[in-house]
Design a binder for these strands. Structure first.
Lengths: 205, 205
DNA sequence: TAGATTGTTAATCGATTAACAATC
DNA sequence: TAGATTGTTAATCGATTAACAATC
């Protein structure tokens, strides 16, 4: 039976829905509607209902969505019901910030190992972990069966380190390096380049 | 004469084109084609030509695009021919990393001031600047005519600080706080939430 | 029951791609 | 000139919205 392929644009909205629903939980809310959720995050109510309907029927006519139930469903859909161990490569300022980042708590991820190629940094402790030598990335990540990595190395090293991560079995890379990476099919990259984010806004200024 | 409105999805690709073109310049290339540029960044050649044609005719049949010329045009289109001063608010690990970030060099931005509300941090130096008191955001930013800010404060403070930034005249906010912000029309926000980036990939794992 | 809100269909809207004349 | 590549048009494809029967 051919599993229906969900458009990437829909997948990309689900984490935003989930984040807002968790926020509503913190505020003590029990239920919400597509209307209310949409207003919070700037998406139309119809779009939210259409997106969710790709995965099942999670609401009730007249009353809307039970937040806890929908959070559970989205958590399952996004495959974050278990916590993913994450490797962080490149212990400059940004790597430091990610290594100590508290925002992964309750979102499906935890930092599990740190790498850098600077002998002066290898062996030192950042947050809860000792920085390991980038030269050992392949065996160490493979041994730990890590699938997710955050890349914080300089542009000059980004593609080389990426190749190692791919060889080690990493399937998802979040990159802070402002360069396009080439990866084989089956490996995904998401880019977080602050300059790109700012330039998307200065166009309008 | 009614200026044609460029779709946001096109605007969002321009910084990526520019980044790759600058990278080509570093590699010493003089010209490129829509085909070659597209292969580098994973966009179709037709789409690049279509996008660019919204703004003018920048290429030559048979030979493609002069990279330096196209860089200059895109720099103008994105309004980054002058450097924007940026205020960074929230001097936790992420704020520190942004304050000392070198990646804004040559991309149209420079960090110009830092704020935090923690008395223990106010007055201390990070990178090239002394941390100022968040209580003074409105007069200080207004006095400096700053239009661009990076938000690195905890979720609990994000909306309040945003309101101050808006009141101070900020028109573009890059937010690392994992929460949806509400801003008046004319003010833009871009979000960089690492967990959202990762969740967009774990769906496929 | 009356009011509210879902899930879904059909219509609309917008973005991408294919193709090619123009021309360097 | 022959080959390459643009800018643009028309066709295709996909995403969003509007509307509403179903039903809580």
């Amino acid at each position: 039976m051919p599993r229906i392929i969900i458009p990437e644009i829909i997948v990309s909205r689900l984490p935003v829905y989930l984040r807002e629903l968790r926020h509503m939980q913190v505020l003590g809310k029990q239920t919400t509607s597509s209307q209310e959720l949409g207003e919070q995050i700037g998406v139309s109510a119809a779009q939210i209902r259409k997106d969710l309907s790709q995965f099942g029927e999670f609401g009730k006519q007249g009353t809307g969505y039970n937040i806890a139930f929908l959070v559970e469903k989205l958590t399952g859909i996004l495959h974050i019901e278990h916590i993913w161990d994450v490797a962080v490569v490149g212990m400059g300022d940004m790597g430091h910030a990610i290594a100590r980042y508290q925002g992964f708590n309750g979102r499906g991820f935890r930092v599990a190992m740190l790498f850098d190629n600077d002998p002066a940094k290898v062996g030192t402790i950042v947050g809860k972990f000792t920085i390991q030598d980038s030269a050992d990335i392949i065996p160490v990540i493979r041994e730990a069966s890590i699938r997710v990595a955050v890349l914080c190395v300089p542009v000059s090293a980004a593609q080389i380190v990426t190749n190692d991560l791919v060889q080690a079995g990493v399937k998802a890379i979040l990159s802070y390096s402002p360069i396009n990476l080439s990866v084989p099919k089956g490996v995904r990259v998401q880019y977080l380049d602050p300059s790109i984010g700012l330039q998307r806004m200065t166009y309008h200024l």
